[in-house]
Structure formats: structure tokens, C-alpha cells
Write a protein that binds this DNA or RNA. Structure first.
Lengths: 125, 125
DNA sequence: ATATCACTTGGAGTCAGCTCTAAGTTAATA
DNA sequence: TATTAACTTAGAGCTGACTCCAAGTGATAT
């Protein structure tokens, strides 16, 4: 599959895909003799993973480190787990902070509703 | 309360507090005749709010807009609610994406554990 | 043959959100 | 009185993650 098609499939730009490859989050992607990238099913699984993690705000430096270890094979599992556990911790903290903000937003929205009710109530007297 | 004290209280730097003030997320903070900021209880409530929202990733441009409306009074409630609802929607999407990544991380960590168990089991034969 | 199109590269530019620097003022301490 | 420390300002610099640009290549359509 060619770069623009893959980009479309994942809702990102070819630029971003090339950038991720340069940063070694994906690939290196095989190229035909014309120099054009041809993405395999496996490449796309990795893109899927990277996209998911990036959408959650995980840093590129982490992903790079992790994927390097992945490619090094089974004897990096212990280290990989440590990295994953650390990222999970960071992610959990962010999730909690966001949940707190979410609740606060909900409260504020409720207050707006209450205010509107009260004042429309007064109008109808 | 003086800037460095407030900064410490909220775990941020004086620079950030001055930056937020310049961007009109807080204040304007009253200054003594020496030109030094003196934060009131009300200022700090707003700092608290801004900090919470920023920690959840809400943009400064939104906070600025929202706080401007707040200061304009009751007849901006409808517009404020619209903004809040929109931000809630954005935040919800991010929360879901992060939850998905969180689950994926957990799965990967489980896989690491299983692998370690299996190989240590083999070792003990 | 020539134009169009999607691709390639290296490197520069952009953006949000801080973060730091330099130069200056003021109040308290040695 | 001189130093120190905490504050002030305007504005420059930094970081992460893209995003864009210019110049070039190669395959296809007219």
C-alpha cells in the first residue's frame, strides 16, 4: 500500500508518516526500485499502535525507545515491561486529571442550566 | 499573597503565573505601590480552575474566551454554556482515546508477564 | 513529446505553551 | 552604605510534534 492511501486510512498525512519513519517509530518501510514506499500489513499494525499511543499523548521519545526494544527481541521483555508500566502510570495520572476537569465542566454546565431555569421561571410569573 | 508563594502553592513557576495573567486567564492582579502583585483568595480560585483545565489539556485560547465572558456577567451564560459543552465534548473524546491506550498498555503488560512466567516455567523443568 | 501526478529528499517554518534573560526597582540585612 | 533577595518588565529562546517547501524523479495520459 502506498503512502497516501495509508495516510488516508489512518486519518493522518503522508508527512506525518515519513516523520514517524525518520524518528524510527515505524519502518523502515520497504521501497520499490523507484524509491516509493510500500507499506505491509505489519507496518500498518505498528502505525495503528503508534497512532493510538500518540492520541493518548505518549511521547515520541518513549515510543522510539519501546519500538527499538521490540525489534531487539525476547531478551528485552523485562526492560519493555518497565517502560510500559511507567507509561501506564503517567497515563493514569493524566486520565485522573482529565476526569477531574470533566466533572468540573459538568458541574459548571449544570449551574448554567439551573440559572437559566430560575430566570425563565421568573419571566413566566 | 506574593507571586512565589502562590506559585509554590500550586506547583507552578512565577513565570507561568505572569504568563497566564498576560494572556488574561487570570487577573489583572492588584499591585502594591511598589508594583508587586498581591494575589487574593478570588485570584487563587481562578488559578485553581485554570490549572485544572490546563492539566486536562484545554487550550489557553478557550480559557481566555470563557473567562472574558465570566467577567462580563450573567447575560453571557448561554454563550458560556455553549463553550463549556463544546469543551466537554473535546475532553470526552480525549478521555476515550486515552482509555483505549490505557487498556492496550495493560494488555501488553499482561503479555510481558505471561511470557516471563512461561520462560521461567521452562527453566524450572 | 509533454504535461500531469504522486511520489522522493533535506531542511526550513510553524504553533502552543511555556521558560529564560537582561536590566531595573525596592526593601531588608550586614 | 553596600549587598542581597525578591520582585518588575519586555522580549528572546526553547521544545515537541508536526507541517510545509523546493527541487527532483518516474509512470501514466494526451
Amino acid at each position: 500500500m502506498q503512502i497516501s492511501e495509508v495516510a488516508k486510512k489512518f486519518g493522518m498525512t503522508p508527512d506525518t508518516l515519513r516523520y514517524y519513519e525518520k524518528e524510527e517509530l515505524i519502518g523502515p518501510i520497504e521501497k520499490g526500485k523507484n524509491g516509493i514506499r510500500n507499506y505491509t500489513e505489519k507496518d500498518m499494525q505498528r502505525i495503528q499502535f503508534v497512532k493510538c499511543m500518540r492520541a493518548a499523548g505518549l511521547e515520541i521519545s518513549f515510543l522510539k525507545r519501546y519500538i527499538k526494544l521490540l525489534d531487539e527481541g525476547d531478551n528485552t521483555i523485562k526492560e519493555r515491561k518497565e517502560i510500559l508500566v511507567e507509561q501506564r502510570r503517567i497515563l493514569k495520572e493524566k486520565l485522573d486529571a482529565m476526569q477531574e476537569a470533566y466533572d468540573k465542566l459538568n458541574m459548571k454546565i449544570d449551574l448554567c442550566d439551573k440559572f437559566s431555569l430560575r430566570s425563565s421561571g421568573r419571566e413566566n410569573k
